[in-house]
Amino acid sequence: MKTSRMGRVMAGMIAAGAVIALAGCTQADPTAPDTDTDAGAATSDTIIVGSFAFPESEILGEIYAQALEAAGFEVETQFNIGPRQQTIPALQDGSINLIPEYNGNLLAYYDVDFEQRTTEDVDAALGDAVAADDLVVYESAEAEDKDAYVVTSEFAEANDLVTIGDLVNVQPFTLGANPQFSELGYGLPGLASVYGVTDVEFIPYEDFGGPDTVRALVDDTVQVADIYTTSPALVAENLVVLEDDMNLIAAQNIIPLLSASIDSEELADVLNAISAELTTDDLIALRDRVEGDEQASAATAATDWLTEKGLL
């Protein structure tokens, strides 16, 4: 279901529950033909902003949509679509034509064996990769949402931990992460081959850096955990992200991905201005507002951020 900008923002202002209800309408297959009676309302000049099916992506989609609307573009949204197996076809068939992406994971979608790790190298390879599907990327943001080796501040201070490599001095220790972490290149195999850290007891947690993983780290069930860099728990629990100075984990910068058919200098100016301002700390704060006690809508959080940065 394509959601008009005005209708969606008004719904978000009326009640959070209304936003949830509207979001639920977007769960249909985005690659299927649109059978709504007003399906023809979107023209070739309309920017249809999509998102993945998790809160951070919807917040970023809101930031893109609101900034573009303020710049005079005709904008619609179609959030909570699903994984890349749905979003890439949606970009190709016109169900959407713009989505906030993550450069490393996007490159992996096209080349599972990619070797680029830094933001610059990943971005350089990404342009050619997406061009094969008539897609374009603009400038990436400093903001990253990626796996990280995390410890408590107490453990870091007691053991002089700054980088992942410093973990060699605290072996043996216990590490908590998602079950696949024991086989992933940036998980236990990479920890051994890149940093020489081999004496590790692994405890799997199914919540991918969520509350169970955080609780295990804080109560010292594990001494190291894989937690994403935009998790509000990093601030709430005063956790420390160990520096990855050997680039074990590929860059995961926020980057706009769009259909080549809507590529323009004016569009690039708006989206690149967002990327120039967006930081990882911003994403943590935005997620905390939406997912934490405040329970702000993605629309409200996006509006406030854009206003603070002078982009509205």
Rank of each mutant, 00 (worst) to 15 (best):
T3K: 08
A11G: 09
G12W: 01
A15I: 02
A15R: 12
A21I: 10
T26R: 00
A28C: 08
P30E: 01
D36V: 08
D38A: 10
G40N: 14
D45Q: 11
G50I: 04
A53V: 03
G61F: 01
E62K: 06
I63D: 05
A65T: 01
A65E: 02
E69D: 12
A70E: 10
F73A: 06
F79T: 00
G82P: 05
Q85A: 12
I88D: 06
A90Q: 01
L91P: 02
Q92C: 07
Q92P: 04
Q92I: 09
D93F: 03
N97I: 02
P100N: 02
Y102H: 09
Y102V: 06
A108F: 03
Y109G: 12
Y109R: 09
D113P: 08
Q116A: 15
T118G: 13
D121Q: 11
V122L: 08
V122I: 14
A124V: 08
A124C: 13
L126P: 01
L126Q: 05
G127T: 08
G127Q: 10
D128V: 09
A131H: 02
D133C: 10
V136S: 00
E139I: 09
E142A: 10
E142S: 07
A143S: 13
V150I: 15
F155D: 02
E157F: 06
E157P: 14
D166C: 14
D166K: 12
V168R: 13
V170D: 07
Q171L: 10
T174Q: 04
G176H: 09
A177E: 01
A177W: 00
N178P: 11
Q180T: 15
Q180I: 04
F181N: 11
E183P: 01
L188K: 09
V194N: 12
V194F: 03
V194D: 03
Y195P: 00
E201P: 07
P211W: 14
V214K: 07
R215W: 07
L217I: 00
V218C: 04
T221E: 15
T221V: 14
D226T: 02
S231V: 00
P232C: 02
V235E: 10
E237H: 13
N238K: 14
L242Y: 00
A251P: 12
N253H: 13
I255R: 04
I255M: 05
L258Q: 06
E265R: 09
E266T: 12
E266Y: 05
L267H: 03
L267C: 08
V270L: 02
L271A: 14
L271M: 15
L271W: 15
A273F: 03
I274G: 01
E277N: 12
L278Y: 03
L283C: 10
I284P: 04
A285D: 05
R287I: 05
R287S: 11
R289T: 13
R289Q: 08
V290N: 02
A296H: 07
S297R: 14
S297Q: 08
A299W: 11
A301F: 06
W305I: 04
K309Q: 15
G310R: 07
G310P: 03
G310M: 12
